[in-house]
Nucleic acid binder design. Sequence first.
DNA 1: ATATCGCGCCTGCATG
Length: 713
Amino acid sequence: MSFDLLAEPIRRYVRDQRWETLRPIQAAAIQHILASDDNFILASRTASGKTEAAFLPILSKVDFRQPGVRVLYVSPLIALINDQFQRVEELCKYLDVRVTKWHGEASRTAKKQLIQHPEGIVLITPESLEAMFVNAPYSVKTLFSQLQYVVVDEIHSFLGTDRGTQLQSLLARLGAVPAGRFAVVGLSATIGDYAEAKRFTGDAARTKVLLDRTGRVMLTQFRYFPATGADLPLDLLKDLYKQTATSKALIFPNSRGLAELIAVKLGQIAGRVGGHANYFSHHSSVDKEVREYVEHFAKHNQRQPFCIACTSTLELGIDIGSVDKVVQVNAAHSIASLIQRVGRSGRRDGEPSQLLLYATDPWSLLQSLACWLLYQEGFVEPLRQARHPYDLLLHQALSITKERGGLPRAELLRQLQANAAFPDIAAPEINDILDELLRLDWLESLGPELIIGVAGEFVVNSRAFYSVFQTEPAYKVVHAGNTVGEIPYSPQVQENENLLLAARIWKIRFVDLAARRIEVVPAHDGKKPLFFGGAGAVHPRIREKMLHLLVADSQYAELDAPSQEALRGLRQEFAGFAWPAQLTHERPVIVKDQHLVLYTFTGTKINRSLAFLLQCLDVEAPYDESTSSFSLCLAPTRLPDLFEQLRLFADDVEFHLTQAVTATPALLDFAKWSASLPLPQQVAVLKERYYDFGGASAFLRDTVRLLSQQESV
DNA sequence: ATATCGCGCCTGCATG
């Protein structure tokens, strides 16, 4: 059916691929994209042929004999562009259509040629598109005045992020370039809020979602090995070795340091017992060429088993083939992340893949179990774009002014107001931001126009202008002229210290502080590398599920005996409460000798907000995110009073936030362009994106019953 | 050292 709708050369391509049938998402996309010029979100799991689902109908539909770039593909990763280039180019051979990579590492000659003869398909990153608007606005017009389709790959990775808002704004600006409109096709994993995904295209009313919910069949097992220190228990590593020794496995331990530790330790065990030598690590601090080697090894080795200990670098769609075991060490921070990781598995022979979930403490086990159950239930964290991204508006105001070489203030205001990325920011607020930019000399008035100011020239002409995220300076780790990777500066960076990187052990021979370069030689024993970073935000729904699991007496066959024992032990601690049959807004309080412990069982942002409010009230209350709990020196009977007081603060927290931002500007480090905003907008950014005072207020209002029990001795 | 991760880049000039 769908197949017959395709253009003849595309049908030939499909036949040559020897696919037995089109995938459901492909069949649906072909029918819908060929039938209308609407925007679409194609949502289905990893490796379900989404790229082809978009390109088969688009290539059938678009007339490439006309001049100009007709299709623009936007990707969050250079590596993905390079991957997709091969696939799309292969497909385009059947049509004689040119495909051009356009990113910072792509050939400049190819870019120049494209400017001379704009045609075909361009694959680009958001930052390169930003750079093109800023540095070569005439090229934007030359290239894209005939644009018919924009394909956004891995659109879920942009949802709820600053980079997503930037991309939305760039698409809005791009929308003014062609005479007609272009349609947007977003490719996505299953996500939590499709209304939000539709908004992302800039025209929710004209966007339809095509969704294939087919998941993976996985054999799941929870395994429990209690840890005493910060490192992983030896028994866990031995068990992990046994479980993965003859498999193709991906291991996700949530941090770069632990990924190194696992890769090295498993490699050492393998060396002792005569196992294979294919133990790798893969994360942002491993040198790019090393990572590419690992990806290539995984993709092209049909027979040999391997183990890659990795971070979210292997969550997105880079093609590494499929693996037969996915291992999660301690709970993933989100269900969205767990979905992506599970999606990496899948065996051709029809055998189900295996998911191993290790835990090293009872709370992590509980969180892991909660995530896994929510995943089974089909829950994914809903993500919202910030409604008041003043910092990104500031960045785009500079970008547009540079693009236009100056423009009337009223026109800049109008353009920002009309931009779909900023629908909830009103004109007076935009004017406040423009005034602040004038005051900083980042903008300047010249007659009726605004132009880039003297100080602003340094900003918009610096390399850092094109991105909306910060990166810390890193030290390059070099062995015998070869780059191994890079690490941040830490107390560990000293001569004769040993560290792990790229799945090997090194001794630091020499540190060149000026050149940010660390010379290393191989060694036999070392520590995992140190990295900085705040904790990831856990969604309230996960914590609520944890509470439900704690109160229930449900058993799960997927838990091994030690896991069952750990869960039983944790349930025991909370067994004395008189839980109602229907658990809604009750929360436990454990009363100890000198203090009480309040378990909020809510999300990170709400906990963070509660901690801030307690600080405002000068209440000493150390807070532990892994157990979602606060310690208070207070009689339990005083808690309702305290909640009432906190609520009053929550409803009017601006004053305290203003004080906090003034005293500690580093609070806004998470938002690169916020430092140059007027103070009220800085406070607004902090309030909307770092905290959740609305959620905190609702928590304080709704948590009507605090059940308490004396600690059993 | 309480504690996740990840993403990007222009221009000019030298060298092979």
